[in-house]
Computed example of a mutant assay.
Amino acid sequence: MNTGSNDPGEVAMATDKAEAMTDGARDERGLGSKAPDFIKARRALHLSWQVGVFVIGLAVVAAGIVMLPLPGPGWVVIFAGMAIWATEFVWAQLVLRWTKRKVTEAAQRALDPRVRRRNIILTSAGLAVVGVLAGIYLWKFGLVMPWKIKDQ
């Protein structure tokens, strides 16, 4: 189709072709290396770039794993490391897409009024059980502050 054409048949074909391309390439768009072209043009440079991205991403993911039991935003740091990997590796891009899809689905489920009502009921029941158990413990053993414990 040239820019001066007003033929409706050509416009329809171009629209159909664009729609087919976006449908087929929806999962394919954005996959692959995001390295600058001058780096991708040289195999050795691109390989060393990928090794550097992998090592940096690995360090960030490892720091996130360490932060899981320790204070710190562990999951956020892990996903940041995955995002670093996703600049170079297709598998990391696919994992991030899958994770984003699952988080979006979970957020939509959490906004469902029936699920919210169920979660509130379960939380209330759990707090009631914990309260009853704490009351039984205090009734049976009493409350002794650590600074009032006598050495025996």
Rank of each mutant, 00 (worst) to 15 (best):
M1N: 09
N2Y: 09
N2S: 11
T3K: 10
S5N: 03
G9V: 10
A12T: 11
M13G: 07
A14G: 08
K17W: 09
A20P: 01
D23L: 11
D23W: 08
G24D: 11
A25L: 14
E28A: 15
R29P: 02
R29N: 08
G32C: 04
R43P: 05
S48V: 10
W49R: 03
W49P: 01
W49G: 02
V51K: 03
V51Q: 00
V53N: 05
V53M: 07
V53F: 01
F54E: 02
F54L: 12
V55F: 06
I56S: 02
G57T: 00
G57R: 02
V60W: 00
A63H: 04
P71Q: 04
P73N: 06
M82T: 05
A83C: 09
I84P: 03
I84V: 15
W85Q: 05
T87R: 15
T87C: 13
T87A: 10
W91Q: 08
A92Y: 09
Q93W: 06
Q93L: 06
R101D: 00
R101A: 10
V103A: 09
V103H: 06
A106V: 08
A106S: 10
Q108W: 07
R109K: 12
L111D: 12
L111V: 11
D112Q: 09
P113D: 06
R117Q: 13
R117M: 12
R118T: 15
I121V: 15
I121C: 04
L122Y: 12
S124L: 14
G126S: 14
V130A: 15
V130D: 04
G131R: 00
V132C: 02
L133W: 03
G135N: 04
G135F: 14
L138G: 04
W139K: 04
K140S: 11
L143D: 00
V144I: 09
W147N: 12
K148D: 15
